[in-house]
């Protein structure tokens, strides 16, 4: 594919960097093969959400500023995490006027950061990544992507709205993949950042209920735009030896580009 003219900065969130590098690699390879000119700033760390969600956004200002410095030179910033992208878009407002970095840089990054699936469909204009994944897949709609970024239509809202979400759009084009229906199609998995450790019993109960919905409806894999939700559900699946696996959407979409 012909190289696009714009420069894309790849943001690999901290927990993907440290614990799920394969998701970062899949994202990098996928974007490259779709013709993006990608840069990966080597000094990146985290978006700061773990601090802010715990009530300490004032301690996160330095993290925010570092993020903006790392990514301000790019036309777009793309990340395989709806939650981190939402955080930058929604909550970096406190960086504006702080004097730590120029406001125009903050706004540029906030306006041009995209979750991977949204970037592929809306900016690259691609629906079919020519992937092959012959499995029954359940989509876990991560809350921040769904309700925060509007990646799909929330079940709470009435009317037809925009119809099919970006994840379904991409996944429905994947050869061999069969999307299963869930009985609660977009209930939260209970990860919720530090909620998962401050309210562990409720968090796990929520996760267990999501996982069993996928299993009851025949999913072999649970996929999502966010590794955080998947990490939480995988933790339960492994502890309880349940018969379902998790896979990030980037891994599915990248699954056969080599073949």
């Amino acid at each position: 594919m012909e190289k696009r003219r714009f420069k894309v900065g790849l943001f690999i969130p901290c927990y993907i960097d440290q614990f799920y590098p394969q998701v970062g690699i899949a994202t990098f390879e996928l974007l490259k093969k779709l013709g993006s000119d990608i840069g990966y700033p080597l000094n990146q760390t985290c978006c700061g959400q773990p601090l802010a969600n715990s009530g300490s956004e004032h301690e996160a200002l330095g993290v925010y500023a570092a993020f903006v410095k790392n990514f301000r030179s790019f036309d777009y910033v793309v990340s395989p995490s709806g939650s981190c992208v939402y955080h930058v878009k929604k909550h970096y407002d406190i960086l504006v006027g702080s004097g730590l970095v120029p406001d125009e840089d903050v706004n540029k990054v906030r306006n041009n950061i995209f979750e991977l699936c949204e970037f592929i469909t809306k900016i690259l204009g691609v629906d079919d990544t020519c992937a092959y994944f012959p499995h029954k897949v359940g989509i876990h709609q991560s809350c921040h992507g769904l309700r925060g970024l509007g990646l799909g239509r929330e079940s709470e809202l009435a009317g037809s709205g925009e119809g099919v979400g970006v994840v379904e759009r991409l996944l429905s084009k994947v050869r061999g993949a069969e999307i299963i229906e869930l009985s609660r199609k977009d209930e939260c998995c209970g990860f919720g950042g530090t909620f998962s450790v401050f309210e562990p019993a409720i968090s796990v109960s929520m996760g267990r209920s999501r996982v069993s919905d996928h299993i009851a409806n025949g999913a072999e894999y649970i996929t999502a735009t966010d590794v955080s939700c998947l990490m939480h559900m995988e933790g339960i699946i492994r502890r309880e030896s349940l018969d379902v696996k998790v896979v990030h959407i980037a891994e599915i979409l990248n699954s056969s580009l080599n073949e």
Binding site: D17, Y20, Q22, G24, I25, Y40, L42, G207, G235, R238
Partner: peptide
Amino acid sequence: ERELPVPPKESFNEWF
């Protein structure tokens, strides 16, 4: 009530 992720030897950054 959950397992931690299995830590890889190499982070994405190191891979890159």
